[in-house]
């Protein structure tokens, strides 16, 4: 992140307060860090069992953007801290996500720089490595902002929120959406496009054509219960909204 230009000003690990890592001061808690620095965002790498505590701590210290990289956070924890953040007017990205990046400017997370280049395409994705694959394939066009929304069932910022942000963003000309089976965020996005709320061109790809029902495909959120959020339901919703759906990640560039 630092190599990419992100100004990392403080680390927080209880019990390690007063130490330094590569010249960056470490604090016992977020409140101490906030007293010493002007902090705009917090990135949580804390293991699943303790991640919720870290999120609440960042929110209560007045930080308005919290990126949660951690996987395996219990859903009830996420459900509660996402609502807590919303009541405070703060934004959560993730959990279980690679973060957010503005190529050649700033990275909050773990996306590998080699796959990205500055440009005009906004990418919103539910998958990490698939985002790198797609960004890499679109390197000749480049990206304005890339948001990994996360693979969990409940996330702070979903594909719909990300697409709405791209609609408002003057740096973004077209939007690439990488979805997968499970949940209904793709269907809700399609409905917004149908109602004219998003006018920029969207090209979508959905992973999970061959995924069996009621089996979890790696991501906690990639599972179809009660037939909700199946591959077919998403593709149909996109097509009804005149959103181009790429058959493979490598067909996206042709459709843009």
């Amino acid at each position: 992140m630092r190599n990419y230009g992100t100004k990392v000003v403080a680390g927080v690990t209880p019990g390690k307060g007063g130490t330094e890592i590569e010249g960056i001061p470490v604090y016992d808690n977020v409140a101490d860090a906030v007293k010493e620095h002007n902090i705009e965002a917090s990135i949580v790498f804390v293991p699943g069992k303790f991640a919720a505590d870290a999120v609440y701590e960042a929110l209560d210290s007045g930080i308005n953007l919290v990126v949660v990289i951690t996987e395996h956070i219990p859903v009830l924890d996420t459900m509660r801290f996402v609502k807590y953040a919303k009541n405070k007017g703060a934004r959560i990205i993730g959990p279980n996500c690679p973060g957010i990046m503005v190529p050649e400017q700033i990275s909050l997370g773990i996306m590998p720089p080699r796959a990205f280049k500055k440009g005009k395409i906004g990418i919103a994705s539910r998958s990490g490595t698939l985002t790198y694959e797609v960004a890499n394939d679109l390197k000749h066009i480049g990206q304005s902002t890339v948001i990994g929304v996360g693979g969990d069932p409940i996330i702070g910022t979903d594909l719909v929120d990300a697409a709405l942000a791209f609609e408002e963003d003057p740096e973004t000309e077209k939007i690439v959406v990488i979805g997968e089976i499970g949940g209904t965020s793709e269907e809700r996005l399609a409905s917004l496009v149908k109602r004219g709320k998003i006018k920029k061109k969207i090209v979508a790809y959905i992973a999970g054509l061959t995924a069996p029902r009621e089996k979890r495909m790696g991501h906690a959120g990639a599972v179809v219960y009660m037939g909700m959020g199946s591959f077919q339901s998403k593709v149909t919703a996109f097509k009804e909204a005149d959103i181009s759906v790429a058959q493979t990640p490598f067909d996206i560039k042709k459709l843009l």
């Binding site: 998958s127 490595t129 693979g151 054509l209 061959t210 495909m217 991501h219």
Partner: peptide
């Protein structure tokens, strides 16, 4: 490596 990429490989 990665759930989305693996699923996409199956597809």
């Amino acid at each position: 490596n990665g759930a989305g990429l693996t699923m996409s490989t199956m597809d």
